[in-house]
C-alpha cells in the first residue's frame, strides 16, 4: 500500500493570538508550533493501515522550511518518510489541495489521510478538494474505518444527532476526527530514528489565493459576568435573571 498522510503545522492550542503588523495574519513571534491535533489521528490511521496491509507511509506538508520540524514529529511516530512541497505559508485551502494533488497525481497513492480540520484556519476543505482534484472518493471526519483485502472500505462519521455509515473503495481521501483511534506517542527510539529518515523536497507551482483576507481582528473583549452568589441560596436569583434579564428561559 502506498499511503500518504497530509499534515498541517499549526500554533499550539493554548496560543494567545496576537494580530501581526500586516493586520491580516497572526504574529508568530514566540508561538510554539505543533502537529495539527486532528492529523495525529490521520498519522495513526496510516500507521495502522501499514501494519495490517504492508506498504509505506509518507507524510506530506505544503509550506516553508519551518514545517520540517512538524514533519519530523510524524516521522517520530513511525511514518517512513517526509515530502515537503515548498510554498509560501500563506496559501488558502485550495492552494494547498492543488499543490498536493499536483505532486501526488503521478505517485499512485492508494489512500491519502488528512485531518478533519486544521486548527489554525479551521476550514475543513483540503480533503474534499483533494478528492475531487484527483478524481478519488472522499469521506470527511471519520470515526470508524474498516478495509477489506479488495480495497473496499466501510466508514463511520458523526452527523448531527447520530452516525452515518458509508462505503467506498480505494484509492480514496479520508479525513479523520477525534474518536477514530488513540494516536501513539513517539518513543525515544522513534525520535532518534526520525532524524535519519529522508524528507524529499519539491516546489509547488506559483499560486494566488482565492480566499483573500482583508483583515484579522480579535473578538471584542467580553465583560466579566456577574457572580450571582454562592451555593443553593443563589439559585432563585439566577433563575430570575435568566427569565427576566437574559430572557433565555
Amino acid at each position: 500500500m502506498n499511503i500518504f498522510v497530509c499534515i498541517s503545522h499549526v500554533p499550539d492550542s493554548t496560543t494567545k493570538v496576537r494580530v501581526g503588523p500586516s493586520g491580516k495574519e497572526i504574529d508568530e513571534e514566540g508561538v510554539t508550533f505543533i502537529l495539527n491535533p486532528y492529523d495525529e489521528y490521520a498519522v495513526e490511521a496510516a500507521l495502522q493501515m501499514k501494519e495490517k496491509q504492508g506498504g509505506e507511509v509518507t507524510a506530506v506538508c505544503v509550506g516553508n522550511d519551518a514545517v520540517k520540524e512538524t514533519i519530523r514529529k510524524a516521522l517520530a511516530m513511525g511514518v517512513d518518510k517526509g515530502l515537503l512541497i515548498k510554498a509560501e505559508r500563506s496559501r488558502d485551502s485550495f492552494g494547498i489541495a492543488h499543490a498536493i494533488a499536483d505532486t501526488l497525481r503521478d505517485r499512485s497513492p492508494d489512500v491519502i489521510f488528512c485531518g478533519k480540520q486544521s486548527i489554525d484556519y479551521d476550514s475543513s476543505q483540503v480533503a474534499g478538494m483533494l478528492g475531487e482534484l484527483l478524481g478519488f472518493p472522499s469521506v470527511s471526519a471519520i470515526v470508524g474505518l474498516e478495509v477489506d483485502g479488495d480495497g473496499n472500505i466501510t466508514l463511520e462519521r458523526d452527523i448531527e444527532g447520530g452516525q452515518e455509515i458509508s462505503k467506498t473503495k480505494l484509492p480514496a481521501v479520508l479525513s479523520t476526527d477525534k474518536g477514530l483511534n488513540e494516536p501513539r506517542y513517539p518513543k525515544l527510539q522513534g525520535i532518534m530514528a526520525a532524524k535519519r529518515k529522508p524528507i524529499e523536497e519539491t516546489e509547488a507551482a506559483p499560486y494566488e489565493n482565492r480566499v483573500q483576507v482583508m483583515e484579522m481582528r480579535l473578538p471584542p473583549a467580553k465583560d466579566a459576568g456577574k457572580i450571582v452568589g454562592e451555593g443553593v441560596d443563589a439559585v432563585p436569583e439566577l433563575v430570575k435573571l435568566l427569565h427576566e434579564e437574559a430572557k433565555v428561559i
Binding site: 488558502d92 485551502s93 485550495f94 489541495a97 479551521d122 476550514s123 475543513s124 476543505q125 483540503v126 480533503a127 474534499g128 478538494m129 478528492g131 475531487e132 482534484l133 472522499s138 469521506v139 470527511s140 471526519a141 462519521r157 458523526d158 452527523i159 448531527e160 452515518e164 482565492r210 480566499v211
Partner: peptide, 21 residues
C-alpha cells in the same frame, strides 16, 4: 456535517472559492 463533506468538492467542480463556517 454534510456541507463540510460536500462543499469542498462542489467548489472544485465550480472552480469557485469557498469560505467555511
Amino acid at each position: 456535517a454534510m456541507a463540510k463533506d460536500l462543499a469542498p468538492r462542489v467548489a472544485i467542480r465550480l472552480d469557485a472559492a469557498l469560505a467555511s463556517d
